[in-house]
Design a binder for these strands. Structure first.
Lengths: 227, 227
DNA sequence: CGCGGCGTTGATCTCTGTCAATACTTGTGG
DNA sequence: CCACAAGTATTGACAGAGATCAACGCCGCG
């Protein structure tokens, strides 16, 4: 299975590899497995020894923690261009979470030994990796703040604004995955999500199935700060 | 101000520097500022350009996010031997949080440029840094799971067990910092913390001011899994 | 001494989780 | 091609965990 032009474009813009020099990129990517997962398939399980990290070429992957009673906590959800599992891979430890395909997924597997070797021969590569992990860390800190300090309405509004990719004006887009998963990602139940979406109608958010319209992003953002 | 034997011992066992070869350690530490902060002093503010990371020699530091209304979210609390702010320092970005001294604090400032240089000349150093960040990442993931999936009682029980450093038997220790701060760290109000501590009496936890006695850690842990 | 921060307790409120019922979609197998 | 099962989404009723507001005692410190 070969990489398409499109795939290469995703890879070279990915958070993990964007800053890596072309020759190193070639060595890292070539010979590494281009793999596919069906919806619902597990990529790895919490506690598995970490031998690789992954760049998503297409589809969605969720990272989850499962407790002793089988209750599942969604830690993050990733899509095209995202890299995940770098942390565990560098220190050849164990994965702290499980990874499951939410949709059909294609991804690039990057062997951690290979990254290790590249860092030793080209230390600059280390900075790409450190930068990638740094970004991951910031995202987690953001999430902690959200859950600790924001209520359901604010978390959802913030999530929608993030999806819109805009700061002002009208925005129209589709929800990227099921509401069940969105609810889990936002730390609430599907029922709460449904109700909270209705509440946001007052702030100019229209929902029709997975179709979202934010009438004025600036207004929604103002509502966020105000409250 | 010189570093004591004790300080060196803390440094060489610190999460950031433990795996760094002695000669590199010397270069990193010597000439870097050994500094002190009074209780309540700010080390840096959210958004400041990150030029260094820090290893705590004594005292406690809290990392906080402050929103537009001045409401404060505690992200983490660090003590002796912990290193913080590595992430931002590597990529010479901005600090995503503010750092404030909770008690009087002594710390070692490690210039990020210096780390940068060391990585370039000795790539193995990069792995120490990556490992340190990887641990930080795991801690944040743990915290996200705690807040999302555990209630106040469970979070507190888990926190106390962590402090005790034991898995079974009787444990007696002091709370490391004020209950206001502990409450914030656990994502609840001081009032809730007070009430929750009372609830835990039924599970063999005795509280007298900042003095804690867990009659049987195994029992408390069982209570955690059970519920 | 008085003030401010900490800690506890009580009363109340509200957000969100839980349980339940229903409708819609999707896919699977007879 | 239909029937049935399973997953998804919405809505209602209800309960409970935890926040909020308020009062009070305590202690350290200027």
């Amino acid at each position: 299975m070969d990489l398409s032009k499109e795939d290469w474009s995703v890879i070279s813009r990915s958070s993990l590899l964007e800053a890596v020099p072309p020759d190193v990129l070639d060595r890292l990517v070539n010979g590494n497995a281009h793999m596919a997962l069906a919806k619902g398939e597990m990529l790895f399980e919490e506690g598995d020894p970490a031998m690789a990290c992954y760049v998503i070429l297409a589809g969605w992957i969720k990272l989850v923690r499962t407790d002793s009673e089988g209750h599942e906590t969604v830690v993050e959800v990733f899509s095209k261009g995202d890299c995940f599992a770098e942390a565990a891979a560098y220190v050849s430890g164990k994965y702290p979470v499980s990874a499951e395909a939410v949709t059909g997924v294609r991804l690039l597997r990057v062997d951690s030994q290979r990254i290790h070797d590249e860092i030793l021969s080209k230390p600059q590569v280390a900075f790409s990796m450190l930068a990638s992990m740094s970004r991951r860390l910031h995202r987690l800190v953001d999430q902690i703040e959200q859950i600790k300090a924001r209520n359901a309405t604010e978390r959802l509004a913030s999530f929608l604004l993030g999806l819109s990719g805009q700061n002002e004006g009208r925005a129209v887009f589709e929800l990227p995955f099921s509401k069940v998963l969105i609810a889990a990602r936002l730390g609430m139940t599907p029922e709460s999500l449904s109700r909270t979406l209705n509440q946001l109608r007052d702030q100019g958010v229209n929902v029709d199935g997975g179709h979202i319209e934010i009438k004025d992003c600036a207004r929604l953002r103002a509502f966020l700060s105000a409250n």
